[in-house]
Amino acid sequence: MKHKAVKELLRFVLAVFLSVSAVLAVSIFMNGMYLLGIPDPEDVQSVVAEYPGVTDEKKEFTDREHVEQAVKLTGFLRYALFEEPVSGGSPMITITYVLDDGRTVSVSADRETVWWKGRPRAIKDREMFINLAEGIFFLEEVSRP
């Protein structure tokens, strides 16, 4: 009797695992894969945003609001797992996270490609990251006539 209950429990756990795996796989295929390894906002001391095509100034932000926005912004850099990035492009915007321990982590993107951990990847939702980054960090520069 006990053996049968354990067997039924294992079947149930396997069915749940397979269902969750299938839903996750479909979600990643449809919406793209999130960048893994983005730091937690609590571990970030400051953020440096660069947009060389618009301004030579590097903007550093230490307030919690900008730090949290910069970390959340990477959620729009989901990439297509099976799509090749556009070659020959160069980053438009770079965001560097300065961590509490002094290390830095950078993510760069143009309208179609994200560079993360030294690898280019095709962005699933093109344009969104650049548009939001402009609005959050470079609104004054891009709204000038």
Rank of each mutant, 00 (worst) to 15 (best):
V23K: 07
V114A: 12
S46L: 01
T55N: 01
A25I: 00
R78C: 07
F12C: 01
R119W: 10
T62L: 09
A80S: 13
P52S: 01
E42L: 14
F82K: 12
L99C: 03
I93A: 00
K124W: 07
L77V: 07
S27W: 04
F61C: 08
P41G: 13
P120Y: 03
G135K: 03
E65H: 03
V26E: 02
T62A: 12
F76C: 05
S90C: 01
L81I: 12
I123K: 11
H3F: 12
M92W: 04
T113Y: 10
Q45C: 05
G135N: 11
A25E: 10
R144D: 02
D110L: 06
Y34S: 13
E60S: 12
K4C: 08
Y79G: 01
A5N: 13
Q69V: 03
L73K: 06
K59N: 04
P41C: 03
F129H: 07
D125T: 07
F61H: 13
P41Y: 09
D125Q: 13
T74W: 00
A5Q: 14
E42M: 05
T96H: 00
A49F: 00
G88F: 02
L14V: 01
R111D: 05
P85F: 07
K72S: 03
V105D: 08
T62N: 10
E57P: 01
R64A: 09
S108E: 12
F12R: 13
G53A: 04
V47K: 06
Q69E: 11
L36V: 14
E141F: 00
L18P: 08
A70H: 06
F129S: 03
E112P: 09
P39N: 08
P145H: 06
V98W: 05
T96D: 03
A49V: 06
D63K: 08
A22Y: 06
N131L: 05
R103C: 02
E57V: 05
E134P: 04
E8F: 02
R126V: 10
L36S: 15
L14S: 12
F138A: 08
G89T: 15
K117D: 14
A5H: 00
I123C: 09
M92L: 10
Q45N: 11
V54C: 00
E57N: 10
A70E: 00
P85H: 08
P41D: 12
G118A: 13
T96A: 01
A15P: 02
I38P: 08
T55S: 12
A5T: 07
K59Q: 04
S143R: 13
A133L: 07
V71K: 09
P120I: 00
Q45T: 01
G118L: 06
M30W: 15
I136E: 07
I123L: 14
F29P: 02
G75R: 08
I93S: 06
T74N: 10
N131G: 14
L99W: 07
G75N: 09
F76L: 03
